[in-house]
Structure formats: C-alpha cells, structure tokens
Amino acid sequence: MTDTVASARSPRFHRLIWLMPAAYALHIVEEHRGGFAAWVTHVVGGEMNDLAFALNNAAFMAILLALVVWTAVSKSRLATFLLIVWSSGNLFWDALFHVVLTQALDRYSPGLVTAALLYVPISLVVAQLALGERLLTPRAFLAATALGAGLMGLVIWCGLFHFAV
C-alpha cells in the first residue's frame, strides 16, 4: 500500500477536514467572549492572560491550517495521521475537557457550546471518513487519537498550569 491515498477514494474526507479550522475559529471567539483566560486563572486555578490566549490560539490555528492544507493537497497517510493527532487533541479531547470541567465545577466553561455542538460531531464524522475511506487503519487511527489525548494533556499542563507538579 502506498503512502498516498487516491483522491477518488477520499473526496469527502478531504473536503470535510476544512470544517475543523472553521469550527476552531468559532470556538476561539466563544472562549474569548466568555473570558476563558480569566476563567482558567480564577476558576480552574491555572494561569493565563489574554495575550497568552491569543498567541496560543494563533499558533494552534496555524498548525491546524498547515496540516489541513498538507493533508488536502498531498493526500498522504502521514499527513492524515498527523492531522488526526493534532485535531483529536485540539477538537475532540478539548470538547471532553470543556464538558468534564463544566460538570465537575458546576459552572460554564467558556468554549463549551462550540465544543459540544461543533467539535464532537465534526470529530466523529472525520473519524468515520478516515476509517471508512481507509485513509488510516484502525490501529493507526487509535494511535493518533491516543497521541492527541497526550498532546491535549501536555497543552493543559503547560499552557494552563505552566508545568506545575
């Protein structure tokens, strides 16, 4: 099996991955308007300011866009794998973060609405297409998703708690 996936086999996946940066942009707006940086500092006990919020999200969006473009243009399995790693961490696992913290803290987590209404369904459709169109094997998909969970954990530990132990 080659590293490149024939575009005839994966037209839906390569079109729908563009929903991820669109959803992420809306999520950034919701988090910003909801005061995510202040929420992290005053509710969660981490530390974040508006500048760090803006810089982190700009960098994460640039990475997401680069991976989407690379995947859409190259159709390579490596690009697809890395896109799933990054997007599972920053969409799927981030949605879980918002849902769990909203429940645990009994308080709205800025970003919850877009995470629940956009991230979860988009992540599930992207997963179904990546597997259904055989762009990744189930084992590779699970590995990418697990790496994405680790990436999200690292982002929380580094970005919100600055490596505090």
Rank of each mutant, 00 (worst) to 15 (best):
A116F: 12
P110C: 01
K75M: 13
I17D: 04
A66V: 05
L117P: 15
V100N: 09
A37V: 07
V40A: 06
L117R: 05
L112C: 02
W86P: 00
L105T: 09
L82G: 06
W70Y: 11
A38W: 15
S109F: 11
A72E: 02
G46H: 03
Q103V: 14
M20K: 10
F36W: 10
G46R: 05
T71E: 05
A62I: 01
I17N: 03
T80W: 10
D106F: 13
I84G: 08
A95D: 06
T71L: 10
A72Q: 04
R15E: 08
L83G: 01
T80L: 10
I122L: 03
M48T: 03
F60L: 13
S88W: 03
N56Y: 15
G111W: 07
G35E: 04
H27V: 00
S74I: 07
L51T: 15
A72Y: 04
F36K: 08
L96D: 12
V69E: 11
S74P: 05
A58P: 09
A79W: 10
G34I: 02
V44P: 13
H42M: 15
V100D: 08
A37I: 07
N90Q: 14
N49V: 07
L64A: 02
I17C: 05
F36M: 09
G89V: 02
N57H: 07
L118H: 05
A37M: 02
L55A: 11
L19D: 02
E30T: 00
L67M: 05
A37F: 00
W86M: 00
V40L: 04
T114G: 03
G35D: 01
G34W: 04
A23N: 01
M20A: 13
H42E: 15
